[in-house]
């Protein structure tokens, strides 16, 4: 009985690990973003799917990019900082100010990603989940409440349509 109830309960979140990673995310973000504490943070990721055809072998490859996504309600700005699953470092931030972007919307299909077009040249699709178990691919962090707040901000105050 005990074993079965454990099996059906599914994976449990290690909150200690999640909190430690949330602190690391804050450290990295504040290191590269001026007034970083003005931003709330979530973990997001991009998926780059590329098809290949090498003669008799063909298929598709998916590249996953980890992101620390910060948002400020007051300045209506989203800041995206690239990182790695173990949070050992991060790249330079990219700022998406609502007044400067071309358009932003919540996608429906194939994934419910947050899409931002800074200009006509390209776009970024930010995917986010409450929690992802695969530590080799994604940052291990539980963010149910923060993601709900970000979704609300994006849909009601950042999206352009």
């Amino acid at each position: 009985m005990g074993l079965f109830s454990k099996l059906f309960k599914g994976p449990e979140i290690d909150m200690e690990k999640s909190d430690a990673n949330a602190k690391k995310m804050r450290l990295l973000f504040n290191q590269v973003v001026e007034n970083g504490d003005d931003y709330r943070l979530i973990f997001g990721y991009t998926e780059d799917v590329a098809r290949f055809n090498y003669g008799f072998v063909h298929g598709s490859k998916t590249k996953i990019g980890n992101l620390i996504v910060g948002w400020s309600e007051s300045s209506q700005t989203i800041v995206v900082v690239p990182t790695v699953p173990d949070l050992s470092g991060c790249g330079d931030p990219t700022y998406y100010r609502r007044s400067e972007i071309l358009k932003a919307y919540r996608n429906k299909y194939p994934t419910d990603a947050f899409i931002i077009y800074p200009d006509h040249k390209g776009y970024i699709g930010i995917n986010a989940c409450d929690w992802l178990d695969d530590e080799s691919l994604y940052v291990y962090v539980s963010q149910e409440e923060a993601l709900a707040a970000f979704t609300d901000f994006f849909i009601h105050r950042f999206a352009t349509k």
Binding site: L27, L28, Q31, L87, G89
Partner: peptide
């Protein structure tokens, strides 16, 4: 190569 900022250690912090 793109800029990369390592996680600050506790001492640096």
């Amino acid at each position: 190569p793109p800029a990369w900022h390592p996680l600050p250690t506790q001492e640096e912090e």
